[in-house]
Write a protein that binds this DNA or RNA. Sequence first.
RNA 1: UCCCCAGUAGCUCAAUCGGCAGAGCGUCCGGCUGUUAACCGGCAGGUUGUAGGUUCAAGUCCUACCUGGGGAGCCA
Length: 434
Amino acid sequence: MTYLDDRIWISELPDHVGETVRLAGWVYNRRSSGKIQFILLRDGSSRVQCVVSPDDVGDEKFAELDRVTMESSVWVRGTVREDKRAPSGVEVTIHDFGIIALAAEYPIQKKDHGVDFLLDHRHLWLRSARQETVMRVRSTAEEAVHDFFRERGYLRVDAPIFTPAACEGTTTLFETDYFGDSAYLSQSGQLYNEAAAAALGRVYCFGPTFRAEKSKTRRHANEFWQVEPEAAFMDLDGCIELAEGLICRMVTDVLEKRRPELDSLERDVSKLENVEPPFPRITYAEALELLSEKGITVDDKEGFGAEDETVLGESFDKPVVVHRYPHWCKAFYMKRDPDDDELTLSMDIIAPEGYGEIVGGSQREDDYETLLKRIDEHNLPPESLEWYLDLRRYGAAPSSGFGMGLDRTVAWITGVKHIRETLPFPRLLNRIYP
RNA sequence: UCCCCAGUAGCUCAAUCGGCAGAGCGUCCGGCUGUUAACCGGCAGGUUGUAGGUUCAAGUCCUACCUGGGGAGCCA
């Protein structure tokens, strides 16, 4: 029997108090007081302090410990003990241990580092407690997305990454060579979702999307993850309700399953606990009024800026739904408001605390002639959208959906300031390594 | 693309008015039987982002470029 066969996870230690167990993991710190040493071990599930004394392991073994460098991989065998001095409540007294692989001098130290250095070492930075914690929350948020849609009868239908042309003409795309032809990395699965919704009723895709914008802010990454549901026979109100439900589900699941993680990130959970339906709903026009009351004038041709969004978001204690944006600032496929042709049946959801827009969605234009006109108005090539127009030729139906930025949402839920910490390997302007 | 800021030891930073290149952490060596980013003593560690310029003298001032950070626009 080797350490691969009988080791248990550090997270399981509280159930094994008094027993002798085996652990395997990495040494993230070691402290020595001459005749007693403390090995801080992590194995991905949790962290624990192991105590080593020559009385337990013998002088020779004890001296061998001096070779163990930071981040070396080891197995240990020892007795689990309750100890009030330990942050997790348990410690392990080591009887035996083995070095699996000694680590070279580890670049990331216990002192502060600069962002540049950390991002260059992202593959190692992920091992630090804070980054590990954010990844746990992200994973739980993703699970909540899948659970939510499955319970509502939505099918996951994966959209392609390679696309022949822009889904939304305006945004810059990453171009690739596709056997001699140009292809582009998807900036949204939305158009494909509409086709899938006409086949399967209620669908969602969940994957990476790519924007070649040279954005340099804490809210932008050039590769980011989007959840995009689309449902046939759903109107804008249904769409808003769906988005509201999704956000609430993600927040409540994280609060329930990742409370210790949020605490260790020093997230003020009181700001998450009141995130429940209904969210405030205001029209674009009402949002302008609200800003105006606060002495902010928004340029008619510009729309909201980031600062305006922050002010809007901070005006409410939960995410706010802004709907019916003017058509000039929205995509060609959004249906116009039957009550006002200047407006679209669109909505954005703005997160509190300055995290900005986390959801953008709309009811889709389902009339063939109108859609054709919009494609023309936006100077898009109709031939590349023939298949999309087919969806209106063959049994057009009201259809709505939205895109939710996972990374931004996780940034908001965890309270981390920059989206780069919510992505395991963020792709940012001028940064694609590692 | 635009605006602002910063590049000095492996890392984080200091260096007064332009006047000898410094500290902490880490590494290495030594000490310590309850440490919590342990602590104490010691050694080693430098083409000050790059290229020019001003000056008796440049880490410091000037010009250009490179790299990164913060923000804007755009969006999730």
